[in-house]
């Protein structure tokens, strides 16, 4: 009998070693995006700046400006929701990656991908609730926004932010963006940053590092 118990214990111990729970990196400062959904003219200069910087062919778009509209003629409304990678506090993409191509930087929380390590299994693409990882059919790899780490490391802001003609897209420490202490042109007088906008996947899934100034018709009641 005791022999059997020992066996079970050993088996359990072996299994325990295999069973792991992913523990996300907690960065010193988590950088994130802020976007003003109303004051954005939707010109997509940010998208093109991003594509040019990253040498992307038609197809993959790291940054995506969504056009939302509603109402009934003539009482209509329209606004934009602008997302790239949200550099989540608990990224869903990261633990899916079999090759370790995706990693989260300890200094600023940027979720970066080394696409040279990617084998194109597209798991991260499926897991991300916001559609950030982009499959490039040209070379069968996943690529995604890395907040222009080369620019960040050089002390500058990413290309999309610097492309914004309206100055409604910015990056900063996400905690400071949330509590309003971060100085940015993206937030106008009286604007309140929110975590979620209409039709956006639940931010509790991955705790994305992005805030919005929502349109009056584009807010979400419970998730301020």
């Amino acid at each position: 009998m005791s022999k059997e118990i020992d066996k079970a214990k050993i088996k359990a111990a072996v299994k325990r070693r295999k069973r792991e729970t992913y523990k996300p990196v907690v960065p010193a400062t988590q950088l994130g995006f802020i976007h003003h959904n109303v004051d954005c003219i939707g010109c997509r200069a940010c998208e093109i700046a991003c594509k040019d910087k990253n040498g992307l062919a038609p197809g993959p778009r790291f940054r995506r400006v969504s056009y939302i509209e509603g109402g009934v003629y003539p009482d209509v409304y329209a606004y934009k929701v602008n997302m790239s990678c949200n550099h989540c506090a608990q990224p869903a993409c990261l633990p899916t990656c079999p090759t370790g191509a995706i990693f989260k930087r300890a200094s600023d929380g940027i979720v970066d991908i080394d696409s040279t390590l990617c084998i194109g299994c597209r798991r991260c693409e499926a897991a991300c609730p916001y559609g950030a990882p982009q499959f490039d059919p040209g070379d069968n790899l996943i690529k995604k926004c890395n907040m222009c780490v080369d620019e960040i490391d050089a002390g500058r802001k990413p290309y999309c932010v610097m492309a914004c003609m309206m100055r409604v897209l910015d990056i900063g420490p996400i905690d400071e963006i949330s509590d309003g202490s971060f100085q940015t042109t993206a937030i106008g007088p009286g604007d309140m940053p929110v975590k979620q906008v209409k039709n956006m996947a639940d931010p509790e899934l991955t705790k994305p590092s992005i805030r919005f100034i929502a349109h009056s018709k584009g807010g979400v009641q419970s998730k301020q």
């Binding site: 090759t99 040279t116 390590l117 084998i119 070379d139």
Partner: peptide, 11 residues
């Protein structure tokens, strides 16, 4: 998936 990544990681 690719049999190996561009940097040579074997799937």
């Amino acid at each position: 998936p690719l049999s190996q990544s561009p940097a040579g990681i074997k799937s």
